[in-house]
């Protein structure tokens, strides 16, 4: 005879198994978010100082804070250009890896290396590569006779954001490439054979079959890239610290500097809460838009 387990044994196991996870998330995620919201209504100049409730004044300040809006704009520029530049190159590289078969193993292994190195190390490395006097980039440009292209890459406010963007692309194209490659590898080979037998050219096959089949993957890549760009921090903090004159300031670097350099914990919290609101709003809009687009096609 089989013994039927009482239902509450399941419940008890579930509670015991979930308790540590729930506790950790409450302490390190939920409580800090609520606390940040509360702090966004205070003036607090650091540990040991008193927190003064100031109502909506931090939020009114945020609405008029040109640095914040500039930072938000920079985040959006980075997000948009990241998607437009990274995804096509990543897809081209993935197609090549997919078609090249085994011969491409070495390339794939080499391409992957930037994903293993910390953004901090990459930031410092590129700081020296971009150095106007001793950097690799200007040395190469001068070496091939393009002296007039040699620039103070991170020192020029009109260039710095794009110099940073180039590093971000360098770092993350391999990541998207591997996402696309995994999707391509899971497509049945018969599809390709059948299309060619029916007289399709390689070009037609790509535009009419491969690309539509990649829709879901492209959507994932867009969302990942977007959310990543809105939270971006490590590399920029190391590479430019948001400068020169705010030209590479992002929401996260601005929040960090307000809180931990200027010790405006109250206003820093306001910027932090604004950051999470922007992330939720934009990812929500993009998710619902891409969903609608997908069902229409």
């Amino acid at each position: 005879m089989t013994r039927v387990k009482p239902k509450n044994e399941y419940a008890l196991t579930a509670i015991v198994f979930l308790a540590p996870t729930v506790l950790l998330l409450l302490v390190f995620v939920v409580y800090p978010i609520l606390e940040s919201v509360r702090l966004s209504f205070t003036r607090w100049t650091g540990l040991g100082q008193s927190q003064v409730y100031v109502g909506w004044s931090n939020w009114l300040r945020l609405l008029q804070d040109m640095v914040f809006w500039k930072a938000l704009g920079n985040n959006l520029i980075l997000a948009l250009l990241s998607i437009l530049i990274q995804l096509p190159i990543a897809l081209a590289l993935a197609l090549m890896l997919d078609k090249g078969g085994r011969a491409m193993r070495f390339l794939k292994l080499a391409y992957f290396i930037p994903l293993l190195v910390s953004s901090v190390a990459i930031g410092f490395l590129f700081k020296y590569i971009y150095d106007p006097n001793f950097g690799l980039l200007n040395a190469v440009l001068n070496g091939v006779g393009l002296n007039n292209l040699a620039k103070s890459w991170l020192g020029d406010p009109s260039l710095a954001l794009y110099a940073v963007l180039a590093v971000i692309c360098w770092q993350f194209i391999p990541f998207h490439m591997l996402i696309f490659q995994a999707a391509l590898a899971s497509m049945p080979a018969e599809l390709h054979d059948a299309a060619l037998i029916d007289g399709a050219t390689e070009n037609q096959f790509f535009w009419r079959i491969t690309l539509p089949l990649l829709q879901g993957t492209i959507r994932t890549a867009v969302v990942l890239s977007l959310i990543g760009s809105l939270r971006y921090f490590d590399l920029i903090y190391v590479l430019t610290g948001g400068g020169p004159s705010g030209s590479t300031e992002l929401m996260a670097t601005y929040m960090y500097k307000q809180a931990f350099s200027s010790f405006n914990f109250g206003y820093g919290s306001t910027v932090a809460v604004a950051l999470i609101l922007v992330v939720l709003l934009i990812s929500g809009v993009v998710l619902s838009l891409t969903k609608r687009f997908q069902t229409e096609v």
């Binding site: 239902k7 399941y10 419940a11 196991t13 579930a14 979930l18 996870t21 729930v22 998330l25 390190f28 995620v29 409580y31 800090p32 978010i33 606390e35 940040s36 702090l39 959310i227 809105l230 939270r231 921090f233 929401m251 996260a252 929040m255 960090y256 809180a259 931990f260 914990f265 820093g268 919290s269 932090a272 809460v273 950051l275 999470i276 992330v279 939720l280 990812s283």
Partner: peptide, 29 residues
């Protein structure tokens, strides 16, 4: 496990995927 509250809890935990670490930084500090 057939445990009713598990489903909504799973959804809540997944919402954690969207949380930027910066919003927790000052309180965690």
């Amino acid at each position: 496990l057939p445990y009713r509250p598990a489903k909504p809890l799973f959804g809540l935990i997944m919402a954690g995927l969207a949380v930027p670490v910066h919003v927790t930084l000052i309180p965690v500090y």
